[in-house]
Design a protein around this nucleic acid. Sequence first.
DNA 1: GTTGACTCCCAAAACGTTTTGGAGGATGTT
DNA 2: AACATCCTCCAAAACGTTTTGGGAGTCAAC
Lengths: 336, 336
Amino acid sequence: MANLKQLAHSLGLSITTVSRALDGYSDVSAATRERVREAAEAAGYRPNASARRLRKQRAELVAVTLPSDPGHVGPPHFLDMLSGCAEHLATAGLNLVIAPVPRGVSELEICQRFVDGRRVDAMLLVRTKRKDERVEYLQSRGIPFVTNGRTESLIPHPFIDGDGFAGFRAATLRFHAAGHRRIGHIAGPQEYYFAHVRRRGWQAAMEECGLATDLCAEGAPLEQGGYLAALELLRQPSRPTALVCATDEMAIGALRALREVDGGSQISIVGHDDLSMGAFTSPPLSTMRMTGENLGATFASLLLRAIAGEPAEDLQELHAIEFVDRDSHRRPPVAA
Amino acid sequence: MANLKQLAHSLGLSITTVSRALDGYSDVSAATRERVREAAEAAGYRPNASARRLRKQRAELVAVTLPSDPGHVGPPHFLDMLSGCAEHLATAGLNLVIAPVPRGVSELEICQRFVDGRRVDAMLLVRTKRKDERVEYLQSRGIPFVTNGRTESLIPHPFIDGDGFAGFRAATLRFHAAGHRRIGHIAGPQEYYFAHVRRRGWQAAMEECGLATDLCAEGAPLEQGGYLAALELLRQPSRPTALVCATDEMAIGALRALREVDGGSQISIVGHDDLSMGAFTSPPLSTMRMTGENLGATFASLLLRAIAGEPAEDLQELHAIEFVDRDSHRRPPVAA
DNA sequence: GTTGACTCCCAAAACGTTTTGGAGGATGTT
DNA sequence: AACATCCTCCAAAACGTTTTGGGAGTCAAC
């Protein structure tokens, strides 16, 4: 109800003075400033957001696209990340809007809708692809953004990511050191950067050990995808004795496949993401996770720095991946 | 870049005409309308959202507060719900912003911040309490809103909720019919409506069966809360033979407690929410879930109708709860 | 008593849209 | 010929804020 004009009128001051008093400018006397502040407080005055946005040419909004493609918007801890991110952004006066991508619409279109309508000052991108058209578009428009996950873009852009290559290489080497020789990989869709790089990590380790890299099956990054991929590997003439899975959800699907296949419980398994439910599967799922505190807040702070104009090269965070030791990777390597 | 003024100038028309042509008004000739449309398309024109919002006195935004209190923002499927909701709202030109509540700030304050700054046209509320100050505030301000979960507000308001009373009563009676006599309840914090009503459902069934209602322990609505509450019940001189748990997360904690306590695996258990991880616990967790398609879209459509001015009484949906049959409720009732 | 510096305040413009209240011309009606 | 009726179009106001570019007054210094 209360706007600047009414407030100014009731105080016998100009709109300008009231506005500047509330913004703490020095060209209004301390006494007046205080008087204005009290009146504003009493009237419950809050500046009209739309008006300020129009005038300041800033939307005070950031959007994150939610890929809804595979029936699932994202891993369960994803909401925690968004929440932490939104909370951090709020301290800078930015609100986070979630932009789900309806069936039949491309993520690019959603980006454009927000950017071209000047509805947002910046974007947050998740589930990046190796060649990601959203990244290309935003770069061409000069809109600040940060991705969760890298891309193969030639022009550098801000990102935060886990070092999937090192993580999956280390996990594979760990299995090798434990005596495994037939180590399979359950891969995610290779157009996603994370899936590709995790697979390359596994592959590198296998080659270092002089092992064949044919025990690899690809599936959707969901429980069902992991289930089907695992069945495929278990049908091989010489079964794997260990499975390195691109995600926990896939690993849980693989566990189900293992249960169904005779002798499957002998097979070691490890996933990635540290889903909380992994602690309650049987056996409890060993996994990997990105190191670092509060991913969401970091994500937000990178974005704020991008908006402030810091160069992309300074805004790239690659976090180490740590192993989470539970039970599912402890099966002994069965004799060939 | 492109705005109405530039577009109008390049077409040799007035701003008014261009604006009205794009909005499809009949007072601009079909020929002009088409010419304008093409030019707008070619220029990639999108109306400036802030300007329209200011002029139309609508924020085109809806916020949902995310309770971050217990370290956890909400059940895992919560994001799916929000995503479906945002998608549906988008068809009406509304975007959904997520408003996490930082530590030390009340949910009410967050509501006020959005409402008083006219940053939103309406609010979505989740995790309602029996006496919910957010509801009172929004009612007093006349802001449209819908809650996920009921409240004890005397003034009716739009909501969508599951019939926890009937669901928990039915589940308890099911245990009774299977021969159980000492049926415990692991309750959530009673200030939450859902927790209270679920407990009352259990209690009603127990009383109908002439059983004592002292086997009840309360905890935080998380794995840990369920774990502690279950331990408490298992310490009783005469242990329960079955546990009805307010949420799946609590039930999973209870399962852990059961594993740790001698003979615990004899105890039947059921939760509520149908978390996907419940299918992978051992034993797989029997549970309950609200019936109905796409909660998020329903939530959104109730809100749109509330914004359109439909009376609250017509916007209250109470959905039946169905039992999800897995393994954890099949333990035989041990003799007393 | 003029000048400059400083303090406190304000009118007006601007942001880009939608909407109001006509204007001007063509066409039809009396 | 006068009048009403459409059909197209438009100038200007309005939404509520921030910012620009001073204006008036006071005070001290020359």
